[in-house]
């Protein structure tokens, strides 16, 4: 690993921090298109979650993160940690968009033995942790944030979590440690889509934002499918004030595709072979 301060600054860094809300909206739409293409013919999967998190990923990758499109291992990069590994389809879509994942690899998503598996594995470029077993993200994000501080890197760690995942004790162990260690280079983004494997969230977890506040996190709560609100929340959370930051995102599973939005069983969606065309048409006509 390169020494801090000696690493070359990449020639191009995405993001262009000046992207407009409109442009970010277009990126989110493109991600949804890509995901739908990846899911087609698979018959089943976590497509509803992919749709609900597209707006977040657009803002994170095209506005918030500093990274090197030519070097996923750039030592000073900001890191996006996807804790909810079964949201892999969304992460792969955005990693494809920034050039880390080839078209051919993307086409093999979810097939037997494919590199791009149904959950995320950290041997793939741009994938920071191995997901799939939920509750692994925030603790590792805390470790990364401590490591960056130790190395005097100014870069940030953004860690995604989901609402059902908040039921895992490891999340709160990490949340407590982050605040105690005053990790203001860490942002948790919590996708509250209201569902988990057995249906609507099985425990009453509200008020979620207040729980993070009580744990010492500077917390905002927004509509996670509102790009302008996402931009504003990230902007409001840049202070180096010794507090870790959290954004509670209220999202809609299947966002952008009304048929999926209204699915009762949205966690693991089964789609009939002939339905994909109409889902694609719905996405196009709901571009908004």
């Amino acid at each position: 690993m390169a020494q801090p301060g000696t690493t070359r600054r990449p020639e191009i860094t995405i993001p262009a921090h000046d992207r407009t809300v409109e442009q970010l909206h277009d990126e989110a739409f493109a991600l949804r298109q890509t995901m739908l293409r990846m899911a087609s013919d698979k018959g089943e999967g976590y497509i509803a979650q992919g749709m609900d998190i597209a707006d977040l990923l657009a803002v994170v990758y095209f506005r918030e993160l500093n990274f090197d499109p030519n070097d996923p291992e750039w030592a000073d990069r900001d890191r996006f940690v996807l804790s909810t590994g079964h949201y892999s389809i969304a992460l792969y879509a955005v990693l494809h968009r920034i050039g880390y994942i080839s078209e051919e690899k993307l086409d093999e998503f979810g097939l037997n033995g494919a590199d791009l598996a149904l959950s995320t594995f950290d041997d793939q470029p741009g994938v920071e942790i191995t997901g799939g077993s939920l509750g692994h993200g925030l603790g590792q994000a805390v470790g990364m944030a401590l490591g960056y501080r130790l190395d005097r890197r100014a870069s940030r760690i953004i860690c995604e979590l989901s609402d059902g995942e908040l039921q895992e004790g490891s999340v709160w162990e990490a949340a407590m440690a982050a605040a105690s260690h005053r990790l203001d280079n860490l942002i948790a983004v919590i996708d509250c889509n209201g569902i988990q494997a057995d249906g609507p969230t099985v425990l009453d977890m509200e008020p979620i934002a207040d729980k993070w506040r009580a744990f010492g996190w500077d917390t905002r709560e927004i509509d996670g499918n509102d790009v302008a609100a996402l931009v504003a929340a990230f902007d409001a959370l840049r202070a180096s004030d010794g507090r870790p930051k959290a954004i509670v995102l209220r999202t809609t599973p299947g966002k952008g595709i009304p048929t999926l939005e209204s699915r009762e069983r949205a966690h693991f969606v089964r789609v009939k072979a002939d339905e994909w065309t109409s889902l694609r048409a719905e996405l196009e006509s709901n571009r908004g």
Binding site: K42, G43, E108, L111, N112, G113, A114
Partner: peptide
């Protein structure tokens, strides 16, 4: 041998 392209890794256990 099952071919890579021939199948998707589906199901839920």
């Amino acid at each position: 041998m099952v071919d890579l392209k021939s199948g998707r890794a589906g199901g839920m256990g």
